[in-house]
């Protein structure tokens, strides 16, 4: 079970949080300007890396804030935690 450091509450067990999947996915719009392929990509296409994954988490059973996490999918090491609206950080 991961130990996740909520930016607002500090280090808490993973079961206080809910994962929202891949981060930094822009919602295309307006609807009339979006083709089927682009909308399908937004709905369904996700990265599946063996390594660094940038994902969204929410402190569901805590402060309720969303934030982003850079996590290694192999070692589960959390390399960065940053705000929901911040850009993807440069990581080695």
């Amino acid at each position: 079970m991961l130990l996740i450091t909520c930016p607002h509450c500090g280090a808490r067990d993973e079961n206080e949080f809910s994962c929202g999947g891949q981060a930094h996915i822009a919602r295309p719009g307006p609807p009339e300007a979006v083709g089927d392929a682009e909308w399908a990509r937004y709905l369904f296409e996700r990265d599946n890396p063996k390594g660094m994954h940038f994902e969204r988490w929410v402190h569901r059973h805590g402060c309720g804030q969303w934030f982003n996490v850079a996590r290694d999918t192999v070692t589960h090491e959390i390399k960065a935690i940053y705000g929901a609206l911040e850009p993807k950080p440069d990581l080695p």
């Binding site: 809910s18 929202g20 919602r27 969204r56 929410v58 309720g64 804030q65 969303w66 929901a84």
Partner: peptide
């Protein structure tokens, strides 16, 4: 309620 928060915090801040 959680859905609303997700949209407000993530898409329409």
């Amino acid at each position: 309620a959680a859905v609303m928060e997700e949209w407000l915090q993530g898409e329409w801040p």
